[in-house]
Design a binder for these strands. Structure first.
Length: 427
DNA sequence: TCTGGGGTCCTAGGACCC
DNA sequence: TCTGGGGTCCTAGGACCC
């Protein structure tokens, strides 16, 4: 009688060309056609269909540099529509939870699932079922990699992406070295540009070579993260699945401007607006911030106008999530770093030292504090109901000439009634 | 003018991820 | 002319203390 094997099995489910797939859902004409989705401000290419990849369009490439290829090949271009992608992402994740409620949502288009409770021999069948269900229920195609560790499941997923079946499992594979040998070292999770350079210098070009490099050498010549990656490649799990979502520690809101900003007044409006977004976000998660950093900079790519970049951090006397106080403090910080005569390209605010908001009154609490809390609550409720920035502060401006570019916006919003498709039914 | 050593904590900057 | 945004973690170095 053979016993059933239950070893550790981590699956990584990754949505294929996620933003492109989202746009295609609502625009079937662009299936099988080359499609790209641009980052904020129509700056860079952040999602490509396979057809676009085949044309040689690179991930992260500036849009204007790829424009020639795009026009020549009739590539469909979309500005990013994050409320659409966010909504579809939630649907995908909800679907995945049917297979195991303990999933780790790793990014907008990726999740780790522990499949250890399934017998080894069934795991590929389960993966097929996951893929088919997600496709059927959400319309989003996925790829799945399964292995003993997170890093290996990433590698397996990388291989799965290129396969018709969309699934690669290392479970039960005696020797994975021949597979790892075909994976470039810079495609390994945790190995970026700098580490790649370093590994190349030391004769390491693929995942197999890193896996088989001596432990002592790796420990000596890189940091803990480097040796963790190597261990994980050997099948020794060092990175656990995070089943409970940990509270975030910081919150950034920053944007590149649609056109360069030179006026102090406009910069103030932008920064005030980012503060409102950031404080609303942390309030919605019941967090307060210990400090705020404001940063501004000119374009790092156009040095002929002179480069200037600076930031200023100010601590709040008491951790806060009050929009008014946050804006006020940010404007003080901005004043201390603003310099006349520069063409600013980007500004942002960072709330840090986030921690759980408590209802405790402290030594300095006043009646006014209570009133502010009520005011913030009603602003948030109103904006939730009637759309963001229905209620704002005068300091955030109205004109907003500097708003981001969005020339190829699809105007689809699954959470907006006006965008619902109409179906004519005959009974 | 000479002027220790060791610990902790904080911060800025870098590397990495998607 | 046009080059994204939002996170986490690690490390080196400085400040501070005894």
């Amino acid at each position: 009688m053979s016993s059933i094997q239950y070893t550790k099995k981590i699956a990584l489910i990754d949505c294929n060309s996620f933003y492109v797939s989202c746009e295609r859902l609502f625009n079937p004409k662009i299936r099988k056609k080359p499609v790209v989705v641009l980052s904020n401000n129509d700056g860079c290419i952040v999602s490509r269909s396979n057809e676009a990849k085949a044309l040689g369009i690179k991930m992260g490439e500036p849009y204007f540099k790829a424009k020639d290829i795009i026009i020549k090949n009739n590539v469909h271009v979309f500005s990013s529509n994050y409320s659409l992608y966010g909504d579809l992402s939630r649907r995908v994740m909800r679907t995945l939870k049917r297979f195991n409620s303990d999933i780790e949502v790793y990014s907008i288009d990726e999740a780790f699932i522990d499949l250890s409770n399934f017998p080894d021999s069934e795991v590929e069948k389960v993966a097929q079922e996951i893929r088919a269900t997600v496709l059927q229920w959400t319309g989003i195609p996925t790829s799945i990699g399964i292995a003993k560790t997170k890093t290996l499941s990433k590698v397996a997923n990388h291989i799965a992406k290129k396969k018709q079946s969309g699934i690669t499992s290392f479970i039960g594979v005696e020797n994975i070295d021949p597979l790892l040998e075909k994976v470039d070292i810079n495609d390994v999770w945790g190995v970026g540009k700098q580490l790649t350079k370093f590994y190349h210098k030391n004769g390491i070009y693929n995942a197999k070579q890193l896996k088989n490099k001596s432990n002592t050498w790796i420990k000596k010549s890189s940091n803990v993260l480097g040796s963790r990656t190597a261990m994980e490649l050997r099948g020794i799990s060092c990175i656990d699945i995070e089943k409970t979502k940990s509270k975030r520690k910081s919150c950034v809101v920053s944007r590149s401007f649609g056109q360069r900003v030179e006026k102090y007044q406009e910069l103030k409006e932008a920064v005030a607006g980012y503060c409102l977004n950031a404080s609303e976000k942390i309030r919605s998660e019941s967090l307060t911030a210990k400090s705020i950093t404001v940063f501004i900079r000119t374009s790092p790519f156009q040095s002929r106008f002179g480069y200037y970049s600076n930031s200023k951090t100010i601590d709040f006397p008491i951790a806060t999530n009050d929009s008014i106080e946050i804006v006020k403090t940010a404007l003080i910080a901005l004043e201390s770093i603003f310099k006349n005569g520069y063409r600013y390209q980007k500004a942002g605010v960072l709330l840090s030292g986030l921690s759980e908001a408590t209802n405790d009154k402290n030594l300095f609490s006043t009646e006014k504090d209570e009133k502010i809390k009520c005011l913030m609550k009603s602003i948030d409720n109103t904006n939730y109901r009637y759309g963001r920035s229905t209620l704002s502060l005068a300091s955030a401006g109205v004109q907003k000439r500097w708003n981001s570019k969005r020339q190829h916006y699809s105007r689809i919003d699954t959470s907006d009634f006006h965008c619902l498709p109409t179906i004519k039914a005959t009974i």
